[in-house]
Design a protein around this nucleic acid. Structure first.
Length: 151
DNA sequence: CGTTTGACTACGC
DNA sequence: CGCGTAGCCAAAC
């Protein structure tokens, strides 16, 4: 079976990436996982399946003292919504912090990745840390825009 | 020491 | 689209 070889080390990388997320922008567990190369001993296939989960574990492991240095509230799930239990205190805190940063939630309590989705760290930073380029959360520009503005 | 639960996703209806 | 389910790992019971 595949286990995360060095959780502490992996967590550190996750936190370092989270620290790069700009104010007012959000990213997903998956996007972060995709930026981190599969740990030694972990098959790529397995990693693609488990990475996001491990990122979640990493955020969950952020200690109180370190909490101010890791903007964990800017990490949400791939559906664009907060993953903490709706009734939880953490969810309220996360939503409050994001709203304070100008991130808006729609009627379904989801954010618009096209507006505030993170494009990832700049290439130089990625290379310097031996990471992989991030997949953009925003829709790729199309030649024939899906819908023209009515105004 | 077996079970349950969780800050995930992909996939099928 | 929305909701339920299956896989998976790790930590907490």
């Amino acid at each position: 079976m595949i286990a995360l070889p060095e959780p502490a080390k992996y967590f550190q990388v996750v936190w370092e990436i989270v620290r790069q997320i700009p104010y007012g922008q959000v990213t997903t567990f998956k996007q972060i996982a995709e930026m981190i190369p599969p740990p030694a001993g972990v098959e790529v296939e397995d990693y693609s399946r488990l990475g996001a989960r491990w990122v979640g574990d990493a955020l969950n492991a952020v200690s109180i003292p370190d909490e101010p240095t890791v903007p964990w509230h800017r990490v949400i799930n791939s559906r664009g919504s907060i993953s903490l239990p709706e009734t939880s205190q953490g969810a309220a805190l996360q939503r409050g912090r994001l709203r304070a940063e100008g991130v808006e939630f729609d009627a379904k309590d989801r954010v618009d990745f096209d507006r505030c989705g993170w494009e990832g760290p700049d290439a130089a930073w990625v290379a310097a840390h031996g990471l992989l380029p991030a997949h953009s959360l925003r829709k790729p520009p199309t030649d024939a825009p899906q819908q023209m503005s009515l105004f």
